[in-house]
Nucleic acid binder design. Structure first.
Length: 666
DNA sequence: TACAAGTAAGTTTTT
DNA sequence: CTTACTTGTA
């Protein structure tokens, strides 16, 4: 038969992009943003436009015709994901907001609510936060009779640290004890029994702690080929930000999710790995090419954030790291002067120095919202907070204690969690103890009956029919009525919270006679937060995974924002952020680096990276400060030596100054 | 026996 | 300010 040839359609348009990718990104960024298929590792130095690159890559994917629903963006906080997607949306359209995004934990939560049954997890499981987990451990410990004082058995906090460390580092409990808790070796058998009981307890009551979310998701993608393949086909393009702060479990999850396509872009900076206490390891970055053979590696080294003198300090700090990884930041921003190192007589003087400099900066036109004060530990800012209030400088504090972790908010939450998961013994326990005359013994007896009930209705009937008599008999009936009331499907979450608060307020007043007004305000605030939600389930998940970090003070202060709020933050919570002016407090050996980590090289290296992260948050103005001759009561040490990370730096890197008192000449 | 209230000490970083 | 332990009370 003869043939007739159709000519190829030369005029068929290749995808036409609205965005000029080559023009708006530098060469390395462009390569990263436009490489869509296959594994890619992006080593992104601080301020190198990593976020910008990710945003453009999302846009590129969408412009190339990939459905947003097939893209997964895993970030360190949900806020980071939201911001990136919003920016991508302004580039190519609102559909970008349909990209799946969030933290590993929140992603795991979503998937497990849908598919958890495969591994024996009911969809209404309750997420335990750290203090919930501690409650469980305390209960199990006393049940096992391990709280008798002759044994000097470790505290619940320590027990959980060990168990959690084992999970996140993917090692066994004995290995953790041997490596980091040598003094507890004699208790190893009991620890193992307790760890075992803890796992069983959670399984029986449909509870999951933070670690479980990751473990379950890992098991899901590893244990069941159909589920893995289903997920892998849903999420055809995966991006993981802050890869240096992922742990082995998370790497396994990524590996499993990408099983069908290998389309993974991991972005990170080994010099900014600061979460090893959570099991994170920058080895994940190093080993990415082994996990994904054929991975393309792209380095972003040009810094668009800071002036060269600031980067000189950053480079000098990280240059002395034991394991250094070949990356030198080069500034694209002109000018700048060396960072200031201020020696202060005492803590007061440091606080006043910072306050005064902030006021000067504001005079010079730097808005408060573009200034931050960073510190190693949350409590390092207490004195400064007083000084700032005196000077009428409004601020928000990130990191440290959150409003959601206060006892009264947790009490209210516990009622709602019972409704969501009637088997949640932790919340039952908490709620029952609130009743007058009802203590741990009675609560446990009641729990035996209550959590056997499959439905809330049955559980409330148990409360009403409880045979033992006490001052609490009537209150149990009230509680039962409340729980039934807020279990009604159609009632909006805000209203549910309001009813619990109404029920709880008399107890609050009784429990906290001295300071209940402050706490009542927190609860009102909580009602407001809750009314933003459509479903109780999403409210509860968010409160566990992405709790609002604001406190009552912040809400009030936010009213008068002429030039915004000053930020106070732990270094950990400052990750990924930037400001025109940055202050770093307490650069004293023993505080920063923290005395906890003085003995261990690995941990000392992490402290060094923490300083690197702090320094690279600053765009133009950087102030480091330290008080001298501080007597630290908890350790009995006199802290007087500047941080070892600043020792022996070339003279021109820092400009050193001594803060002195004005001489009163009146 | 079970609960409440009072006293003495310990506090990194976070999902 | 919270937690663990001690003492006091019904």
């Amino acid at each position: 038969m003869e043939t007739y040839t159709l000519r190829s359609r030369a005029d068929r348009p290749a995808v036409r992009y609205k965005i000029d990718y080559a023009g708006e990104l530098n060469q390395a960024q462009h390569e990263a943003a436009t490489t869509l298929e296959g594994p890619v590792l992006v080593i992104a130095g601080a301020g190198s436009g990593k976020t910008r690159t990710l945003v453009y890559r999302v846009a590129r994917l969408v412009e190339s015709g990939v459905s947003p629903a097939n893209v997964l963006l895993l970030t360190f906080t949900r806020k980071a994901a939201e911001e990136m997607l919003a920016r991508a949306a302004t580039l190519v359209g609102a559909s970008c907001e349909r990209v799946a995004g969030g933290t590993f934990h929140s992603f795991a939560n979503t998937v497990l609510r849908r598919l958890g049954r495969q591994i024996g997890l009911e969809p209404n499981f309750t997420i335990l936060d750290r203090s919930d987990s501690e409650d469980v451990v305390a209960l199990l410990r006393s049940r096992a009779g391990l709280d008798r004082k002759e044994r000097r058995f470790p505290r619940k906090n320590t027990i959980l640290e060990i168990v959690s460390m084992a999970v996140n580092r993917s090692v066994t409990v004995p290995e953790v004890v041997e490596a980091s808790y040598g003094h507890l070796v004699e208790h190893l058998d009991d620890l193992l029994r307790l760890a075992d009981a803890y796992g069983r307890y959670k399984r029986e009551r449909n509870l999951a702690d933070y670690d479980d979310l990751l473990v379950h998701l890992r098991d899901l993608v590893r244990g069941s080929p159909e589920v893995a393949s289903h997920l892998s086909r849903t999420y055809r393009y995966i991006m993981v930000d802050e890869y240096q702060d992922t742990n082995l479990l998370q790497a396994e999850i990524v590996r499993g999710l990408a099983a069908e396509h290998d389309n993974v872009m991991a972005v990170g900076d080994d010099s900014q790995s600061i979460y090893s206490f959570r099991g994170a390891t920058f080895r994940n970055i190093m080993e990415f090419p082994q996990l994904f053979p054929g991975a393309r590696i792209i380095k972003l080294e040009e810094n668009y954030r800071s002036t060269q003198p600031i980067l000189d300090l950053a480079n000098a700090v990280i240059d002395r790291a034991v394991e250094k990884h070949t990356k030198t930041l080069r500034a694209r921003v002109e000018g700048g002067s060396p960072p200031l190192l201020a020696q202060c007589a005492d803590e007061q003087s440091q606080s006043r120095f910072v306050t005064q400099r902030i006021l000067e900066l504001r005079e010079e036109g730097v808005p408060l919202s573009d200034i931050a004060v960073l510190f190693r530990s949350s409590f390092h800012s207490f004195d400064l907070e007083l000084e700032l209030s005196r000077a009428d400088i409004p601020f928000v504090k990130r990191g440290g204690f959150k409003f959601i972790e206060t006892a009264h908010v947790k009490d209210v939450l516990a009622h709602l969690r019972i409704v969501a998961n009637p088997r949640d013994a932790v919340s039952w326990h908490r709620v029952l103890l609130l009743l007058d005359g009802l203590g741990p013994r009675t609560a446990e007896d009641l729990l035996g009956h209550v959590t056997g009930a499959a439905y809330l209705q049955a559980a409330t009937e148990v409360l009403e029919a409880y045979p033992r008599r006490g001052p609490y008999t009537k209150e149990l009936k009230h509680l039962a009525a409340l729980l039934r009331e807020i279990a009604v499907e159609g009632l909006p979450p805000g209203e549910k919270v309001a009813r619990v608060v109404a029920f709880y307020t008399p107890m609050l007043r009784h429990l906290h006679r001295d300071d209940f007004p402050k706490r009542e305000k927190d609860l009102e605030h909580f009602i407001t937060i809750a009314s933003r939600y459509r479903s109780l389930a999403s409210l509860l998940s968010d409160m566990a995974l992405e709790p609002p970090s604001d406190s009552v003070g912040d809400v009030l202060a936010a009213g008068d924002e002429d030039d915004g709020l000053l930020t106070l933050s732990t270094i950990h919570s400052a990750k990924g952020l930037e400001w025109q002016a940055v202050f770093v407090l307490w650069l004293v050996d023993g505080r920063f680096p923290s005395y906890h980590n003085l003995h261990d090289t690995e941990e000392m290296e992490e402290e060094r990276r923490l300083l690197y992260v702090s320094v690279t948050r600053a765009k133009r103005h950087l102030h480091l400060s330290y008080p001298i001759d501080i007597y630290d009561r908890t350790t009995g040490m006199v802290l007087g030596k500047p941080s070892r990370f600043l020792e022996g730096l070339p003279g021109h890197i820092l400009s050193e100054t001594q803060v002195i008192e004005e001489v009163d000449t009146r």
